[in-house]
């Protein structure tokens, strides 16, 4: 269990809702849910949820901290925005889902083997390295995520698409040796470090 997690448990003893409100993006909306369930019914990933959004909100209110933060539910969201559009109370459900996922990740509670969680980490690492997505490296990293032979199989399956992208100049084999980057990579890294600093100090400051 991460240090931050212990800190947070200590700090928001008994009130997971308040913890969410303080630390999760758009978390202050959770209390506004009236349990109509239209979000859960509208989600195209419907049947695959362990806990649909409205239930997650109720669990937060009921203080089910571990069940929520270790759930793979919020990693299911594909940002289709159906729920936001239909929510009669105007809850930014998609954002809350991502906020919860991010928070669970920060606390080290996100399900390790969840593919979208894994993808998110790889995508972030890939992107922040140069300030540009390295399509080739990202693709390969994903293909080989579940082992070498799996990776070979997937790569072969995807080779026509790769060739197509190469022909239309969407993908360069040269990316493998470094690839393109933004103008001021070190500047970007400073920005990201600062952002993290602000985020953490904000969480510290919130007295709940």
């Amino acid at each position: 269990m991460s240090n931050l997690n212990t800190q947070m448990i200590e700090k928001y003893r008994n009130s997971f809702l308040r913890e969410v409100e303080a630390n999760v993006e758009e978390g202050e909306w959770v209390k506004m849910c009236m349990q109509c369930g239209v979000c859960s019914g509208s989600c195209p990933f419907g049947p695959h949820w362990e806990h649909p959004p409205q239930e997650i909100f109720m669990m937060i209110r009921a203080g089910k901290r571990d069940d929520v933060l270790t759930s793979d539910s919020m990693w299911m969201c594909t940002s289709c925005y159906n729920c936001i559009v239909r929510c009669p109370r105007g809850l930014p459900i998609t954002h809350i889902m991502h906020g919860l996922a991010h928070y669970a990740h920060r606390l080290g509670l996100a399900p390790k083997e969840n593919p979208t969680h894994k993808f998110a980490i790889k995508f972030w690492d890939n992107l922040t390295r140069t300030g540009r997505v390295n399509e080739l490296k990202l693709g390969l990293a994903l293909y080989f995520m579940n082992g070498f032979s799996e990776g070979i199989k997937t790569s072969l399956k995807m080779k026509d698409i790769g060739l197509g992208m190469w022909k239309t100049k969407r993908l360069s084999p040269m990316e493998i040796v470094g690839g393109h980057k933004c103008k001021d990579v070190s500047g970007l890294h400073k920005i990201l470090a600062k952002a993290r600093e602000i985020e953490e100090s904000k969480a510290q400051k919130f007295s709940g």
Binding site: L17, K31, M32, M34, Q35, A62
Partner: peptide, 9 residues
């Protein structure tokens, strides 16, 4: 709800 009252069915 805005004031943080929790409603539980």
């Amino acid at each position: 709800q805005e004031k943080g009252v929790i409603f539980t069915k």
